[in-house]
């Protein structure tokens, strides 16, 4: 565990050593504004709530979060620095978790920078600030889930673009797994428990519950175990693919 903060610090700093961090934050803030005010109808809804803001996060993250995750391992493998990292006295867990937590903190930072939304909505009316806090928590957990998938895809592909596309595709599946159109495809032949299982994997239902202010321990556990499972897969893939 001793080395985790060292890996974390290096990884987080590396986001800011290139323009990537600033470009990402800028695009995230602009897009979340556009989605909230134009597509979400923030003013038209006439409600002091950030629901129009959070509703678009699953879709916004679908493209933005894999962009943070794609470099995590693909870059190490491409440049060969993975050989350096894996021959330093660092456990797999420390390397995988340190990198993930750096990316997750970065996503959290971008999310925190949307604080003018909170000010705006508090200025305009009297929102349920508890729901706003859980909304942020849900959004951050959602970003973590996307990042964990992206981290695994980044370990799988040496090419960052391929890592990005794989991560978008995989995350998309976890969004739509709760949609009727996908569940209908199962309903003809599959047993009910399988349909329920597929539906319960969906990010959307869990995220919506949390962002409405309902914190169910099962939803939290879902996100956390989802992240842990994908990070374990990442460690496995790193071990298998590191020398390719």
């Amino acid at each position: 565990m001793k080395q985790l903060p060292v890996i974390f610090k290096r990884e987080l700093a590396s986001y800011f050593s290139t323009p990537l961090a600033y470009v990402f934050i800028l695009i995230f803030l602009v897009l979340s504004g556009v989605f909230t005010f134009y597509l979400g109808g923030f003013f038209e809804s006439n409600q002091a709530s950030l629901a129009p803001f959070f509703n678009f996060h699953p879709w916004l993250y679908l493209f933005l979060v894999p962009a943070i995750a794609m470099r995590l391992w693909a870059e190490e493998r491409k440049s060969g620095s993975i050989e350096l990292l894996m021959t330093l006295p660092v456990t797999r867990f420390e390397a995988v978790a340190g990198k993930f937590l750096a990316a997750w903190s970065f996503a959290g930072l971008a999310l925190l920078l949307t604080f003018p939304m909170i000010i705006t909505v508090n200025y305009l009316g009297e929102p349920d600030n508890g729901a706003i806090i859980t909304g942020y928590l849900g959004s951050w957990l959602l970003a973590g889930a996307y990042l964990a998938v992206g981290s695994c895809m980044s370990a799988l592909a040496k090419n960052q673009v391929i890592a990005f596309i794989l991560a978008v595709a995989a995350c998309f599946l976890f969004i739509v797994s709760g949609f009727p159109m996908l569940l209908d495809a199962f309903s003809g032949w599959a047993p009910q428990w399988l349909i329920d299982a597929v539906a319960s994997l969906s990010f959307l239902i869990r995220f919506e519950a949390i962002s409405k202010g309902v914190i169910d321990l099962r939803d939290l556990l879902y996100f956390l175990s989802f992240i842990v499972a994908w990070l374990a897969a990442t460690a496995l893939v790193v071990d298998l693919k590191k020398a390719d």
Binding site: K2, Q3, V6, I7, K9, R10, A13, S14, S17, T18, S79, G80, S81, E83, L84, T87, L88, P89, V90
Partner: peptide
């Protein structure tokens, strides 16, 4: 062990000072 891999791969976007400090921290 001190190990120099073939081709001496490093973290290209880091500064030399920062990179060596990172290694020193990993070494405790």
């Amino acid at each position: 062990i001190g190990y120099l891999p073939e081709g001496a791969p490093c973290y290209g976007d880091m500064r030399v000072q920062g990179f060596l400090e990172f290694i020193a921290e990993i070494r405790g």
